Computed example of a mutant assay.
Amino acid sequence: MAHTDLNLIRTFLILFETGSVTQTAEQLYVTQPSVSYALNRLRELFNDRLFVRTSRGMEPTTVAHQLYPSLKEALRQVNDTIESSRHFTPAHCKLRFRLALTDLGEMALLPAILNLFYAQAPQAELEVVPLEIAKAQEWLMAGKVNAVICSRPLNGANIQKHVLLNDRYVCLLNEHYLAADDLADKGLSIEQFTRGRHVSISSSSGHDLVEEVMELRGIQRKVSLSLAHFSVLPQILHGSDLIAILPLQIAASFEDHLLKIHELPFEVPSFSVALHWHAQTSSAPSQRWFCDTIIKAVTSAQTI
């Protein structure tokens, strides 16, 4: 049904509800022959008679009864989307928005975003899509997501962005293991860093700037554990001598009496976390509201 005229669906629904070609034509402001023509197209499309003429009017077939709920809901969603685009008010919005985030983004930013999102649009839906940085630009161009929050730049010609916050990378490790080293009071040295055992996070999250710097400077480390997500790090680090590299904002939330933050023993540029969206969607009021809401939520959380 990829190329089906929505008017065919409207014809089907009204004919189902009224059982009358005449009333269907009146409600659609078309002629009765137009309704008959639409019905013939529907019959070809679904390979079924759909409606049978009886003394009581046009009686739906079994197939028509099966189709009615799905087509009714589909047309409702289309109408809601069109109405929200033309006369958008967050309080009445029933749209679903899709936001691509890493698990770090979920931990650090999502609570504040959700609070403001649902405060303004309680009937709207938000779907969080796990970020795959290599696909992020494609997702935006294809409309798979409304927006992406990431720390790596998306440089497409039609991609717009707004910087949400600035951060830098640090090391997080169990202080118990570092304290046994006589260099502990001097901070983490390059020798400690290179001979230590490390936990690495998948580059699909977009947090691979440190790896790039190490490769350029010829710094090698021993990766003893590879993970897909950052969120499990506290449990892992509490019981091991592993060293993790992660953004300071998240490291600070993980730090406790055992886990301590140490500066990297080599220089790595700070980075920006930005909201990205497709420029062509900016004209839609719902899209503008969604992006503005994210920006306001994150900005407010940063100033608390």
Rank of each mutant, 00 (worst) to 15 (best):
residue 17 E to T: 11
residue 18 T to P: 03
residue 19 G to N: 07
residue 19 G to I: 00
residue 19 G to V: 12
residue 20 S to I: 00
residue 20 S to W: 02
residue 21 V to T: 11
residue 21 V to L: 13
residue 23 Q to T: 12
residue 23 Q to D: 15
residue 23 Q to R: 13
residue 24 T to V: 06
residue 25 A to P: 01
residue 25 A to R: 00
residue 27 Q to C: 04
residue 27 Q to K: 14
residue 28 L to S: 08
residue 28 L to N: 07
residue 28 L to K: 11
residue 28 L to C: 06
residue 28 L to M: 14
residue 29 Y to C: 09
residue 29 Y to V: 09
residue 30 V to H: 02
residue 30 V to Q: 03
residue 31 T to I: 04
residue 31 T to D: 11
residue 31 T to S: 15
residue 32 Q to A: 10
residue 32 Q to E: 15
residue 33 P to T: 03
residue 33 P to G: 00
residue 33 P to K: 08
residue 33 P to V: 03
residue 33 P to E: 01
residue 34 S to H: 10
residue 34 S to T: 14
residue 34 S to C: 06
residue 34 S to R: 10
residue 34 S to Q: 08
residue 35 V to D: 05
residue 36 S to Q: 09
residue 36 S to G: 02
residue 36 S to C: 00
residue 38 A to W: 02
residue 38 A to Q: 07
residue 39 L to Y: 02
residue 39 L to M: 10
residue 40 N to R: 13
residue 40 N to M: 07
residue 41 R to A: 04
residue 41 R to P: 05
residue 42 L to E: 05
residue 42 L to Q: 07
residue 42 L to R: 00
residue 43 R to Y: 04
residue 43 R to P: 03
residue 44 E to S: 09
residue 44 E to Q: 14
residue 44 E to F: 00
residue 45 L to W: 08
residue 45 L to E: 12
residue 46 F to H: 09
residue 46 F to M: 02
residue 46 F to N: 01
residue 47 N to A: 13
residue 47 N to E: 15
residue 48 D to C: 06
residue 48 D to E: 08
residue 48 D to S: 14
residue 48 D to M: 03
residue 48 D to L: 03
residue 48 D to G: 05
residue 50 L to C: 07
residue 51 F to D: 02
residue 51 F to C: 06
residue 51 F to Q: 04
residue 51 F to A: 00
residue 52 V to Q: 10
residue 52 V to R: 11
residue 52 V to W: 03
residue 53 R to H: 13
residue 53 R to W: 05
residue 54 T to N: 07
residue 54 T to F: 01
residue 54 T to A: 01
residue 54 T to S: 15
residue 54 T to Y: 07
residue 55 S to M: 13
residue 55 S to R: 15
residue 56 R to C: 04
residue 56 R to W: 07
residue 56 R to K: 15
residue 57 G to P: 03
residue 58 M to F: 11
residue 59 E to F: 09
residue 59 E to Y: 08
residue 59 E to R: 12
residue 60 P to S: 06
residue 60 P to Q: 10
residue 61 T to E: 05
residue 61 T to W: 04
residue 61 T to S: 06
residue 62 T to D: 13
residue 62 T to S: 13
residue 63 V to Q: 13
residue 63 V to F: 05
residue 63 V to R: 15
residue 63 V to E: 12
residue 64 A to G: 00
residue 64 A to M: 06
residue 64 A to C: 08
residue 64 A to F: 05
residue 65 H to M: 10
residue 65 H to E: 12
residue 65 H to L: 04
residue 66 Q to I: 09
residue 66 Q to L: 11
residue 66 Q to P: 02
residue 68 Y to W: 09
residue 68 Y to K: 10
residue 68 Y to G: 00
residue 68 Y to D: 03
residue 68 Y to C: 01
residue 69 P to Y: 04
residue 69 P to D: 02
